[in-house]
Amino acid sequence: MDVRGLDHDGTIAREGALDRVQPAFIPVVDAARSHIAETFGSTRLHSAYLYGSIPRGTATPGVSDLDLQIALHDEPTEADHADAKAIGAALDRDFPQIEGVGILLASVGNLLSELERHDAGFFLACLCTPLLGPDLAAQLPRYRPTSLLARETNGDLARVLPHWRAKAAAAAQAATEADRRRLSRLVGRRTVRTGFTLIMPRWGGWTSDLDQSAELFGRYYPERAERMRTAASIGRVPSPDPAVLGMLIDDLGPWLAAEYTAVHGEKAPRP
């Protein structure tokens, strides 16, 4: 893998590996594997994956969260989501070295579908590390840093912003500080990833590092660079300050959504 995150053939290299997991997080990963296998069993579970800073080897104990993708044989049910939530709660309770657990559920059919080929498919093939079961990446193509990939991964920010505004308004009135921090982390990370994929085809590579993504974005949009650095900062260490969240949702966000649509177009609608 070169400095732009590409393999020798110019396709995006898969990031992360189990042997990069730092010692502090090995017990967390082992427990996650056991919980998933015991909860879903072979009848429901096809495979499970890690993603984020833990398999990349860049996690910070007490700050980083644990991110998991679970692929089921069939479409996830309410019971499946409840089971995943219970797994997340147990891991978060038992391991102080993580700050929260995020678990994505999807069916094999959805992950391999043509509609998801350049979104969920790319995510699994390039950003996820196999943890349990057969690796679905073997059934997906190799990806390049193209405008098509940019559009299908993050070309829906304009649709997401109203939802963020509603959650931010509710959080300002009734949510706990922990809820506001979780929201700011979500918004910060998604904003940086959208900013990076906006310039990804011009830069010609891939990174998931928030700080690097913000700095690369700033090369092409220097007038917005400081705001994007703020987004990267709260993506790593979330802030309960509503003014920071407001800046991202009501200032940087609308501009970024409009620029993204102008450059790459809008993501294909999902059912």
Rank of each mutant, 00 (worst) to 15 (best):
M1W: 14
D2G: 15
D2L: 13
V3N: 13
H8F: 15
H8Y: 15
A13I: 09
A17W: 11
A24W: 12
F25Q: 08
F25K: 14
I26W: 11
I36Q: 13
A37R: 15
E38Y: 10
G41T: 08
L45K: 12
S47G: 14
L50C: 11
L50N: 09
Y51G: 09
G57A: 10
T58A: 11
S64I: 13
D65R: 01
L68P: 03
I70F: 01
A71T: 08
E75M: 07
P76I: 03
P76F: 03
E78I: 12
H81N: 04
H81K: 08
A82C: 03
D83H: 12
I87V: 07
Q97D: 12
E99C: 11
V101R: 10
L104Q: 13
G109I: 06
L111V: 14
L124P: 00
L127C: 15
C128H: 03
G133L: 09
G133E: 01
D135T: 06
D135W: 07
Q139T: 07
Y143R: 00
Y143S: 04
L149D: 00
E152A: 04
W164A: 01
A169M: 07
A170F: 07
A175F: 08
D179S: 13
R181C: 07
R189Q: 12
F196A: 02
L198A: 04
P201G: 04
G204D: 07
T207F: 04
T207V: 05
S208P: 01
D209F: 03
Q212Y: 06
L216C: 05
G218M: 11
Y220V: 05
Y221T: 08
R224V: 02
A225R: 10
A225K: 04
E226F: 13
A231Y: 02
S233A: 15
V237I: 15
P240W: 15
L245D: 06
L245H: 07
M247V: 09
I249G: 02
P254D: 06
W255K: 14
A262K: 09
H264R: 05
H264G: 05
